[in-house]
Design a protein around this nucleic acid. Structure first.
Lengths: 225, 225
DNA sequence: ACCGGTGTGAAGTAAGTGTGAAAAAACACT
DNA sequence: AGTGTTTTTTCACACTTACTTCACACCGGT
């Protein structure tokens, strides 16, 4: 049974959406603010959170950021049409999707299912690497920049994941060939350059996250150092 | 503290390489032949072995083969340029990497770190040098002044690290060329001056930390002495 | 004031990297 | 097996960067 946590400060909206979702076969818990949401998240361990952005006190962004520091639970933002909000920020904070109110029951369940499917079975813990507006889902091999999917080939993806997992550390072309391509690879080292090039291009502005260390190799920047 | 065992029959080479490695922060033991090497391996349990191939008596290959029958310690082969040797055999016997002489200190430490990292050596530490508003991260080769990153080239970085690690001590240009550039360097000593100049410029107000000792060389100031 | 040591800016030189295109290889689909 | 598509690798060239050298100005100590 899939269990959802709905976070919204308006009781009317909570009642309406709860009805939608229960009709669709989910069990639903509700929280009226961020603190209550995090409490219930720990107690109930829901499979997905629907999080309203506009709330008195801590807004949805703040709550999401807090949750992401200890949990990878999927989060879908709720926002009213015409409301001023930052789509890029939503994804960079670790949001997985968003729904604009008012929405139909069908749209809501479709999006929930899509997100859950993307995460695989609810028991399977997914691994996601995030850096600014870049998110890398290891299991589905999906890379997003600003929330839009970027199509990467196998080698490109493996290379990106390896660098992003060890951000801040420098790897020579030989090391990258050995770990990403495999020890039996026998070609030239310039192949790495070409893949770095296409990665930078496909990642658009996030391509700058992969830096050249002159005379040594490449590294993924580490903002914390 | 990472401990290395250096095996080479030439005393000059042992002295030189030992100096390189101790400057890089390792402790070093030396053995002049295969028997001594295996004895010290059992007694000291080093984290990595640097093994010269061309040695009188048992050569490096034979020693490696013998060691591999009872130990998985990482082994890096040393070989002179142009020397006849079998790269494939080196790896098939269980070697982890090789370095061609003559080599620069930077190349040597880079390869050692790479091998240790591949083995997931727990002794690897995140080393940071700090002095006032200056911070130097050895592994990511990142230098910050007042919290903002300063882009240094390879030689500039190596030179700064060497001076900053031994703050207060004075080094002649010849000493700096030998330890930072490597023994095979053959150019003039004024190159050091130029690198000092750019370092001082790039480090902004922290550039004053590198002082000229007239008629002798340079030193990194030591505030505590 | 002298003389050798040092700071500095501007060159030259060598090496490393970015890039576009083409070749080669892997793959999918008949 | 044959075809077409995508991915991967190679290559050549242009470009950037790091390193070194040099000339000249400046400085420090005697």
């Amino acid at each position: 049974m899939t269990h959802l946590l709905l976070v919204d400060d308006e009781q009317d909206m909570v009642d309406l959406v709860t009805m939608y979702l229960e009709n669709a076969g989910y069990t639903v818990s509700a929280a009226l603010n961020g603190d209550e949401a995090e409490k219930k998240l720990r107690e109930l361990g829901p499979d997905l959170i629907l999080l309203d952005i506009m709330m008195p006190g801590r807004d949805g962004f703040t709550v999401c950021e807090s949750i992401r520091s200890y949990s990878d639970v999927p989060i879908i933002f709720l926002t009213a049409r015409g409301e001023e909000w930052d789509k890029v920020r939503a994804f960079s904070l670790g949001g997985d999707d968003y729904i604009v109110k008012p929405f139909s029951p069908g749209e809501m369940t479709a999006r929930i299912q899509a997100v859950l499917r993307r995460f695989g079975s609810s028991t399977e813990k997914r691994e996601t690497i995030r850096y600014q507006t870049l998110s890398i889902d290891i299991h589905s091999r999906t890379v997003k920049v600003d929330g839009t999917v970027v199509g990467l080939t196998m080698k490109e993806f493996d290379l990106l994941v390896f660098l992003a997992k060890k951000r801040g550390r420098i790897f020579s072309r030989e090391e990258l060939l050995e770990t990403v391509w495999g020890a039996q690879y026998s070609g030239g080292t310039r192949t790495v350059d070409t893949h770095i090039k296409t990665l930078r291009m496909k990642l658009k502005h996030e391509g700058a996250s992969i830096e050249t260390v002159w005379g040594i190799g490449y590294k993924f920047v580490d903002g914390s150092v």
